[in-house]
Structure formats: C-alpha cells, structure tokens
Amino acid sequence: MNEHRRQILEMLAEGKVTAEEAERLIDALDRQHPEPVPGTKPRPKFLRVLVVADDGTSGDGSSRINIRVPLQLLRAGVRLTALVPPPALAKANTELARAGWPIDLTQLKPQHLDDLIEHLDDLTVDVDDPGSTVKVFCE
C-alpha cells in the first residue's frame, strides 16, 4: 500500500472524509499512479534514511531522523559536478592528500557517479544497535 492510499484510509478512519470521498480520492490516485503490473519490479524513486536513537542522556526521549531524497535529485546533483573547474579539483586533491586521503577527484567522472546512483536501487543498509537503529534503502 502506498503512502497516499494509507493517508486517505487514515482520513477515512478519523472521519475527516466520507467513504464516497475516500473512494473518489483513491480512484483519482489510481489514475495518477496506476498500479504496477505484477511480476515487474517497480523502479525505486527515493533514497530513504531512517535513524532512531535513544538519547538516554538528556531524558528527552529518542531522536528520530527520517529523510527521503528523490533519486532524480541525486542524479541532478551529480551532473552539477561537471561544472566544478579543474583548478578547484586540483586544490581539493591537494587538501585530501594532506589529510591522508590520496583520492584523485579528476578521475571521478559524472557518468561514473551516475552509474553509482543507478545501482543504489539494490542498496540496503541496516544497522541495529542496542541504542539506535539506522536504515538506508531505496523505495
């Protein structure tokens, strides 16, 4: 069940909309985003980062981070790297080498980063710690 559908059902449960209105909304949603054909894996659109940490020190309860970034936004950001002038990359290389990270950023081409984002679809990071949980995945 997608998020919009769940929101409509929640509104129905809370009595904010009538059953007829909810049906109309769901119909409109289906027209806008048709259900995928069974058997085909839909392409993820978002990179999701969820962090829940119990902050026992302050006594204020837990900290929660929920970030959803469109993969398209990552691709657009990667294309911006093509605008970075070579002298800036050379300076960054020097600073990285000085900090003990001998990475040559001039070898990093936008198409490589594009490929990287293309394969983020399969990425799932799941960290379970007694005090915190971190999940990174595409949806």
Partner: peptide, 11 residues
C-alpha cells in the same frame, strides 16, 4: 528534481 523530498528531524 526536488519534488517529493522530505526531511524530518525530531529530538
């Protein structure tokens, strides 16, 4: 491309 982005930070 930023449409659909969501950032929620709760402490």
């Amino acid at each position: 491309a930023s449409s659909g982005a969501r950032f929620e930070i709760t402490q």
